[in-house]
Amino acid sequence: MPLTYTVNPALTPALRDGVLDLWTDVSNAGGAVGFVPPVTREQVRPELVRHLAQMAEGRTRLVVGHDEAGEVAATAFLTHNTHRLMTHWLWLYTVMVHPRHQGKGYGRDLLAAAADAARGLDGIEAIRLTCRGGLGLERFYGSCGYKEVGRVPAAIRVAPDDDRDDVTMLLPLG
């Protein structure tokens, strides 16, 4: 059964805790969402609070997918650019699908929901994201219409002697 996607849902304690649990579970499963496993909820919480503060300021929108049980199963954050010359595109951050739901096409659905949300915003022409090299994420995003537009070799250090490229990808919305 497909996930149900909502843009900017009411921020309830259940939603906040669901996103925190998702982020922790995805990180501990090896997902490239800003952490290296093992990670605890307490380590993830400050990053979530930062995203939530940006939502409260109106700079960030949350796209959340709920499964048939009503659990948070997927998220992505769309963040407006603050630079006055770059307000025509958004950043896409923290794209996550719970490990128990991966391989079902929900990642593609999440990216489509994020693109639809971005298309609904005045003046937005593209979505930009960065991803960690070495995990096949460039191929996944490429299959969803994103194009690689930049790469910084060895910019992400996940462990001693384990540096990954920081890959920038762009999805034109026109």
Rank of each mutant, 00 (worst) to 15 (best):
A73S: 08
P46M: 05
T75D: 07
P37A: 03
L11A: 13
V26R: 00
G150N: 01
F77Y: 11
A112R: 15
R16T: 15
A159M: 02
F140A: 08
A114M: 03
P160D: 14
P13N: 03
D122W: 08
I127E: 01
T6L: 15
V26D: 10
A154W: 04
E42M: 07
H80F: 13
E68M: 12
L22R: 06
G30N: 03
L78C: 07
A154T: 08
G18S: 04
Y141K: 01
C131I: 02
T87D: 08
V19T: 02
P13E: 08
Y146W: 09
N81C: 11
R119Q: 04
A112W: 08
R128E: 14
V49D: 15
D109Y: 03
A14P: 05
G145Q: 05
L170K: 15
V36M: 01
L15M: 04
M96K: 10
G133W: 00
G18I: 11
T6F: 13
P13H: 01
I156G: 03
L171Y: 04
L110Q: 05
R50A: 14
L3Q: 06
H66W: 07
G107Q: 03
G142E: 00
W23E: 07
P2C: 07
L22Q: 05
D21I: 06
Y146F: 13
F35C: 09
L48H: 00
P37M: 00
L62R: 08
S143H: 11
V152Q: 13
Y146A: 06
R119L: 02
A69S: 15
A117T: 11
N81H: 04
G150P: 06
G133F: 02
R139E: 12
V26C: 12
C131M: 04
D21R: 13
D17Q: 12
T79I: 08
G136E: 02
C144L: 12
R108N: 06
L85G: 10
R164M: 06
V26M: 05
H66T: 15
L48E: 01
D21H: 07
V97Q: 02
T87I: 12
G30Y: 01
A76D: 08
S143D: 09
A159Q: 03
C131H: 03
M86K: 14
R59I: 06
D162K: 10
F140E: 02
R84T: 12
V158P: 08
V97P: 08
G30P: 02
S143L: 10
L170C: 15
Y5V: 07
P99Q: 04
G133E: 00
P37Q: 03
A32F: 02
G31K: 00
G65E: 01
R132V: 15
G120C: 03
P99N: 05
L121A: 07
H51I: 07
P38I: 00
F140I: 09
C131Y: 01
G70A: 03
G142M: 04
V95S: 07
A155L: 00
D109V: 12
L48A: 05
E138V: 09
G145I: 04
P172K: 01
I127G: 11
G123F: 03
R61Y: 09
R50V: 13
L62D: 04
L111Q: 07
E138M: 06
Y5R: 08
A10I: 14
S27H: 00
P99G: 06
R157C: 14
P13A: 01
H66D: 12
